[in-house]
Amino acid sequence: MKKVEDKIVELESMKNYPNQLYFTGNLELLKRVKISIVGSRKPSKYSRLITHKLASSLYKNGVCIVSGGAMGIDAIAHKSAGVSNTICVLPCGINIKYPAINKNLLVDIEKSGLLISQFEKDFRATPWSFVVRNEVVVALGEVLVVIEAELNSGSMRSIELALKMGKEIFVIPHRMGESEGTNELLKSLKAKAIYDIDEFVSRFASRDILENKVDDFIEFCKTNPTYELALKEYPQRVFEAELSGEIIIQNGRVITA
């Protein structure tokens, strides 16, 4: 664990710039185009699917995902973007992998992505530290995307922070009676709806990165490795690529779609 020595420009939009920031992982991710994604800890099947599609599409277009490592939408966003393309802001010290159910994910982000915390290494999360965490998540992103949120949820408090910072807020449209928090935001014109993921992503796509990027995982899959070997070398990406249809498993071997 190290201290962030240089000022992070995006965090100057916070009410008070953090007195201290600790990190482990790849600090270079802070230089990327970043979008914050938050939402329910118990998302619907629809929200889970949309989160995966959105985060994976942003990843493919060179955009880094920022979220809070919580269960539900946060975890899906981190996984779908790939751990090496995600920034996780913790409500606790970096030594405490919270929530425990996401311990493996947080360890993977620590190795390949970036973990950030305002707290000493062994600090355990408290109700107020989640609010502190949320402010950093919102500040780091160019915009805030809320996938699913009920009224009075933690995600709605993140929206309040985004409004104070003057951040654009985007939400996913839901049916009446579902995700009433985001539906209320649309009704009050405080947020914009994402009706087309490709159109939304194109606004932020980092084409310079994309043109020069070689996907090591896809290049590896072109050699038609065994499924077992692919799982050993790229455990998280195999899962993501199967879901998105990038690869097909046939007769125990990986084939690029």
Rank of each mutant, 00 (worst) to 15 (best):
E5L: 13
T182H: 03
E228R: 08
E228P: 01
K192F: 07
S188E: 12
R203V: 08
L229S: 11
G25S: 03
I209Q: 00
F217D: 02
L21W: 03
G82Q: 07
K34V: 01
I87C: 02
Y46D: 05
R32D: 10
E168F: 04
Q20V: 13
E28A: 10
N19W: 05
G141P: 06
V132L: 13
E135Y: 10
V254W: 09
K7P: 03
N61D: 08
V143A: 02
I96S: 01
F119T: 12
S80P: 01
I218E: 11
K45M: 13
E242V: 05
N212D: 10
F217V: 10
I65P: 01
K187Y: 11
E148W: 03
D216A: 13
Q236E: 15
S129E: 10
F220T: 02
V138D: 10
L185W: 09
V63K: 04
N19S: 15
S202L: 07
I255F: 14
R253T: 15
E120M: 07
S158T: 14
V107Q: 09
N61Y: 04
K190I: 00
F23A: 07
D122Q: 07
K111Q: 08
E110A: 14
G82Y: 03
E150R: 11
I255H: 14
S206R: 09
F23C: 12
E242M: 14
M176R: 13
L151F: 09
V145W: 03
N134K: 02
E180R: 10
F200R: 05
N224V: 13
R41M: 05
R32H: 12
E28Q: 11
K3R: 15
N26E: 08
G177Q: 09
H174P: 08
E219Y: 05
E178Y: 13
A75K: 06
